[in-house]
């Protein structure tokens, strides 16, 4: 019995934190030799089983798979600390007054003029994607819940900074009605 328990314990210790679900839904196995491979994780009853590319499988503890949520949070923190992320903080208003974006370190408000009043989203925010070279960001405002890279509620805005970071272009409606909002920061 002891002989059987020891290898299981070792396997369990070695596999701790070695599986990570990425924000695109893929799960990867981080191997001890410094390489990695994509694996599939399936559920069998209460158990989670990893299907490896070499044809073998392994039962794992669900806690050993770091969730996409944690990864995304880390990415969000990293994005927010970049010059683009920091430049977002403050109140932005479009030239025609049709859109307001207000970012504080923890909350954000999006207010867009509609035919009848405004459409408003307010709540927590995060940066989903950031491209320093293009000066573009995808920002999620006031989401209600999240499952990996699927988000529920709130608004997703695709933003791009001017070279001097003084002007913000909201290109979220470029595809739907060819409209790009040009926003400037107000104090």
């Amino acid at each position: 019995m002891r002989r059987a328990l020891l290898p299981l314990l070792l396997i369990s210790l070695l596999s701790a934190d070695s599986y990570v679900t990425l924000d695109n839904g893929k799960t990867v196995h981080l191997k001890d030799d410094g390489t990695w491979e994509e694996v599939k994780v399936i559920k069998k009853g209460e158990k989670e089983i990893v299907l490896k590319n070499d044809g073998t499988w392994e039962e794992i503890n669900p806690k050993d798979v770091e969730s996409a949520n944690i990864i995304t949070n880390k990415a969000d923190e990293k994005f927010k600390s970049t010059p683009l992320g920091k430049a977002l903080l403050g109140k932005w208003v479009s030239d025609d007054g049709d859109e307001y974006l207000i970012f504080t370190p923890t909350t954000a408000t999006l207010k867009i003029r509609q035919e009848r009043g405004f459409r408003t989203f307010t709540g927590k925010w995060r940066i989903e994607k950031l491209d320093e070279k293009e000066r573009s960001l995808t920002v999620n405002i006031a989401e209600g819940a999240r499952l990996g890279f699927v988000t529920f509620g709130g608004a997703m805005r695709k933003l791009r900074f001017s070279e001097d970071l003084q002007t913000l272009y909201d290109e979220s409606e470029k595809l739907s009605n060819m409209r790009v909002y040009r926003l400037h920061k107000v104090r």
Partner: peptide, 9 residues
């Protein structure tokens, strides 16, 4: 695999 920015609202 490459789906992103999936939003239900």
């Amino acid at each position: 695999a490459d789906v992103e920015n999936v939003k239900f609202s």
